[in-house]
Every structure is written in structure tokens, then in C-alpha cells.
Design a protein around this nucleic acid. Structure first.
Lengths: 245, 245
DNA sequence: CATTGTGAAGTGATTCACAGCA
DNA sequence: TGCTGTGAATCACTTCACAATG
């Protein structure tokens, strides 16, 4: 995917920088966080359309493919600039490039993964990373028996090497897939080494300095949220029959 | 964890049903979605405190452990009922039980996992599910060569058996860990079999009937969101130097 | 008297609805 | 004519700030 974006980038670079990036007179506001979180979804939808050789899509089409309503999609896109054509819709490849650029996917990002258990393995082999401009630069595990083991075309390193490798490969994103008990220590080491974005799969709250971004994915939390709704459905959607006051 | 909740449940069952479940005169409103999403985090924090034999915690303590501010925590808890003591704080085990009950973790939930690739394997072995009241009832894969293979103490079944197994084990939650191309078909089969909550790891938008809940986790989307912020940091937090208008 | 529980105020996100434009 | 881009209205969530209270 990145490759086709790269092709586009030559053709479009003239307009690429002449954005106004939505927003008010202060002239520098970012995109609302909720919109940012949806841009990758739009990108995915556009990529799928592009692969089916669709040239143009209306906000309605795109919104359908992304699973949102069209007003929200148009509002989100309006923060990036004016990339549509009234009466027509959006040029799929053009918009795709604009979004990729906005997210920062026209450059490659190096990530390291720490904690190569079941999940770490799965992440290391996850094709979705590499296809979207992320390069797994190194894998780490604290268990000395695992160090040296091959996973895909990488070899697991010991935590002691983390600082050096992060610096030499200019890694800016770290993925934590350790048990909860190790997560804060690993996080501290990553931050110390210069990583400034962290994706945390460990079920633990991390504290980091203000300049570091953390996002978390907790698999069991997602299931618990589903369980809550499941329970409500089973209860007849209210608590009408639960009784008492 | 569930086992200790189960112990508690005998002692506390008298109060268990006498809730008012927050909220206004219509007397039946659910808890705001944003609050629901945090309840599992509070539960985790309470479990950690409980394991350290902490008996009582203030909203400030708890909020710290959960990584939110105390006003938000108190507001969230207020939707569940009045479980604190002014001037004192919250009884850790009591509150833990109340939240577990609200989420629905005082009962066990059966889940099936479809798509036993790298990620499916990791999920099948994930200790966090079982420790939080989720039982993996069966694993499915469409690849006939994989059917019969053991993963943990389960054997992979073919998709053809999905309907029967979902019904016989009263499974209400399905986890999709297939490639995107298979996801909608698997989803349809799950819904057809009677599953009413789905956790989707495939990078695809699923359409489901209204009574079915879907939550999604997309690993590469999380990285892309981090990349966006990373790019902004690299740009000096605005677009001041990007130039042009 | 420390801490909860909660109205009220503030902030942010979504949806509406239509003017503006190709 | 059809569809985008966007103010204005609405809805949801967060934070403030303090009265109520064990």
C-alpha cells in the first residue's frame, strides 16, 4: 500500500503542502482526537475501493464502507482540507494519499516489540503492520533462554540491548506485550531509550512523562464490555424484572 | 479472581439486588457507554489493591491506580449506586464485587474463537480471559489441515460444527481472528448460530443485525494513531514550519 | 473533618439541515 | 441537479465545586 502512496506522492506533492488543515483563526489547531481515530478506517476503506478500481466515491459510499454515517465522514474530512468535488464526490486515490500523509504513513516508522510470548509472536508476524508502513526493527524479551531465538526474520534480543538498538534504528514507537508486572519497568526503559509513543497490551496502567503518548489495548476489557451489554440484553434491556428498590 | 468474587457473592447477595443503578426518574437508564468502558479498569485496580490486602481506598487512591482523575471515578461509580462512605472511601472488596456484578462477571461467559492463526493462538492461550470469567468453549478454523490440531486443551473444529457447538455450549460471544476477507462470512455464521456479541480483530467493517453488538480491535489502527501524534511532535507540535497557505 | 455524591458549568463530539458550488 | 462543506443545534462526556454526611 505504501508503495502506491509513494508513487502518488510525486504527482501530488505540489498540493500536498498547501493545506489549511481545517479549523479556526489560530491557524494551527489539530484534528479532534475522535476524528484522528477514524482516519485509519477511512484509509482502509479507500484502499479497498482502490483495489477494486473504483475511481470516485461519494461521502455516502465511503461512509458505508467505513461503517460510519456520511455527515460524520464529511465533517472529519473537512478538518484535513477540501478534497472533494461538489456534485461528484471524492477521488479515491487522491483522498487516500491525503489521509496517508496526514497520518504520517508516507514515511516509514520503526517499532520494537518487547515481550515475545504468544501475543508478542503474533504481533511480530502480523502482516498488517508492515503493509501499513511500520517496520519491526527488533524484538526483546527478558528471558535469557529466549534471547537468540528466531521469529520470522528477526532474532530476539535481551533487554540490555534495548537502548542501543532503539537509538541506532531511530525507533520512535514501542509495543509492550509483557505480563502486567513487567510493563512499567519496560516502559521506563523504552522512554529512557528515547521512544515517545507506546502501544501497551499489558493489563497495567503506565505512567510516562508528558511528551510520551500511550495507547492501550486490553483484550479482556473488550470482552468485559461485551459481557456488560450481553447481560443487559439477557435482562430484557432494563432492570424492570430485577425488582426491589 | 472470579473465585474470590464467588466467595463474596454469598455474603453480599442481600444488598446485591437492592440497587438503584444511578440515574433519573425514568428509573431504567443504563450507564453511559464511556463509564461502562472504564468499569473493567476499576475492577482491575481493585483486584490489585485487594491482592495487596488493602481494605479501604479513597476515590483519589483508586483513581490513581486506574489512571483517571478522581472526579470522573466518583461520577462513574455514582451510576452504579452509593457504595462509598463519606469521610472514609470505598471498601475494596465490596466495591469490587459490585462492579463485577454490574459488568456481569459474577457469571461465566462462553466464547468461541474463529481463525486460529498467530493471533487466534495467542487469544486461545490468553490467561486474562479465563481469569476474568470467560471460558473458551471452542476454536474454529476454515483450513481443513488445521482441524483436529490441539491448542492448549482444546482441539480445533471445522466451521461446519460452529452452529451445533455454539448452541450446545450456549456461547453468546464470538471472537473473530480471521483475515479480513473471511470476517463477514464468519460473522454471519456466528450470528446465525445465535451469538449476540462479537469481538472483531479482523481489519474489516462487519454488518450485523441490530440486536448484535460488535466491538473491534485493530492493531494497526492503534499504531497509526500513534504515528499521527508522533509526526506532529516531530513537526514541532503545530504546522508552523510546514509553510505555505 | 475528610471524603463522597452530584447539580451545574464547561468542553468536545455528533447530527442536522442547507447554502454553495461543480 | 447532486453532493460537498459547514454553521448551528443537539447530545454526550468531563470537570468543577460544594453541600451532605458518616
Amino acid at each position: 500500500m505504501l508503495s502506491s502512496c509513494a508513487e502518488l506522492s510525486g504527482a501530488l506533492l505540489t498540493t500536498a503542502r498547501s493545506r489549511r488543515s481545517g479549523r479556526d483563526e489560530r491557524g494551527e489547531r489539530g484534528i479532534p482526537e475522535a476524528s484522528v481515530a477514524r482516519l485509519p478506517i477511512y484509509l482502509r476503506a479507500l484502499t479497498a475501493l482502490s483495489e477494486r478500481n473504483v475511481v470516485t466515491a461519494s461521502s455516502e459510499d465511503l461512509a458505508g464502507a467505513a461503517g460510519v454515517n456520511s455527515a460524520k465522514l464529511r465533517k472529519d474530512l473537512s478538518y484535513l482540507g477540501t478534497y472533494g468535488t461538489r456534485g461528484v464526490g471524492y477521488d479515491v486515490n487522491y483522498l487516500r494519499y491525503q489521509i496517508a500523509r496526514e497520518i504520517g504513513l508516507t514515511q516509514d516508522w520503526s517499532v520494537v516489540i518487547v515481550g515475545i510470548g504468544n501475543l508478542g509472536h503474533a504481533l511480530a508476524n502480523y502482516a498488517g503492520f508492515v503493509s501499513r508502513g511500520f517496520r519491526v526493527a527488533a524484538l526483546f524479551d527478558s528471558d535469557p533462554r529466549r534471547v537468540g531465538e528466531r521469529v520470522g526474520d528477526l532474532q530476539i534480543s535481551g533487554l540490555g540491548d534495548l537502548g542501543a538498538i532503539v537509538k541506532s534504528s531511530s525507533v520512535s514507537i514501542g509495543v509492550i506485550a509483557t505480563p502486567a508486572s513487567a510493563a512499567q519497568d519496560v516502559c521506563d526503559r523504552l522512554v529512557e531509550a528515547g521512544v515517545s509513543s507506546i502501544l501497551n497490551f499489558a493489563p497495567a496502567v503506565l505512567s510516562v512523562p508528558g511528551h510520551v503518548d500511550v495507547r492501550k489495548v486490553d483484550l479482556s476489557i473488550e470482552l468485559q464490555i461485551l459481557a456488560y451489554h450481553e447481560q443487559r440484553k439477557a435482562n430484557g434491556l432494563g432492570e424492570l424484572q430485577v425488582g426491589a428498590v
